[in-house]
């Protein structure tokens, strides 16, 4: 009896985890003080994880989460001293047309996918080894910066799957099964995937990229629910607040120390 209690407890403890890994351009210094930041429309989707394991998109939760994320990012950036605009629609940017904003977003989406593929998913490129983050959106990004007067552009993506009541019940059944020797508490529960990319509009380069992945194998264990302001604040904190300078800058700082 004692054995399964230990096993189940260990399984529950181990099965929820939050991972984050950031990459930066070698020469990157996090923006501080007097900078102008453009935040593109946050790409948010929140859904419910059904009993059978499908994700059911929810319009109301998604809207709620987007509102919370925008508020959290606004509050956070206010502390850093920068001026910021968060786009809620593509036609809100003075100096650039809706089509230009759409093209810019799509370009970042393509480059962002490459970054995720080659930096996070294991298809590492030998030509990019040891170079930090070496990706650019090119001249179009520079032109957008000149037209609109912003120094940086920030892209945000968040997807959240909330375990439904049925999924939680199924997990409870699986955990209960441990008593009779069929132990399946870790069928997969809530999952959150967020990423952010910062583009320097003076050079067009993607200077910083971060991915936060939070998941729980056991339905019913929740973390940072984006539907609540507290969850969105936690997400903005994990994703954006621990921006590290690039490797070259950090090494130089170490050398300067006595």
């Amino acid at each position: 009896m004692r054995n399964w209690v230990v096993t189940v407890t260990a399984a529950l403890l181990l099965s929820a985890c939050v991972q984050t890994r950031q990459y930066a351009d070698l020469q990157f210094t996090p923006p501080e003080g007097d900078y102008k930041l453009l935040v593109l429309r946050p790409d948010v989707s929140v859904g419910s994880l059904t009993t059978g394991g499908m994700v059911e998109p929810r319009a109301d939760w998604t809207e709620q989460a987007r509102t919370n994320i925008i508020a959290a990012v606004r509050a956070q950036q206010a502390q850093r001293g920068g001026k910021l605009q968060i786009l809620e629609r593509r036609n809100q940017l003075t100096g650039a047309s809706e089509q230009e904003v759409a093209d810019f977003e799509r370009l970042f989406y393509a480059v962002g996918n490459s970054i995720v593929l080659h930096k996070y998913l294991g298809d590492y490129l030998p030509t990019k080894r040891g170079k930090g983050l070496e990706y650019t959106l090119g001249e179009d990004a520079v032109r957008l910066g000149q037209k609109t007067g912003y120094d940086y552009a920030l892209f945000l993506h968040a997807e959240d799957e909330v375990a439904s009541g049925g999924r939680i019940a199924l997990g409870v059944l699986g955990a209960a099964g441990c008593i009779v020797g069929f132990c399946a508490p870790n069928i997969g529960g809530a999952t959150q995937l967020d990423y952010a990319g910062l583009v320097d509009l003076k050079t067009g380069e993607v200077v910083w990229f971060n991915v936060v992945q939070a998941s729980s194998q056991v339905p019913g264990i929740a973390f940072g629910d984006l539907r609540t302001p507290a969850g969105a604040t936690q997400m903005a904190d994990r994703l954006l607040n621990r921006m590290k300078p690039g490797l070259a800058i950090r090494r130089a700082a170490e050398v300067e120390k006595p």
């Binding site: 199924l170 059944l173 009779v180």
Partner: peptide
């Protein structure tokens, strides 16, 4: 339809596992 069928399958599979083990 898909949601209903995968729900039924998930519950039935779990019940079969737990019930079978019992």
């Amino acid at each position: 339809d898909e949601r209903r069928k995968t729900d039924i399958f998930a519950v039935a599979a779990m019940a079969a596992g737990v019930g079978g083990a019992a």
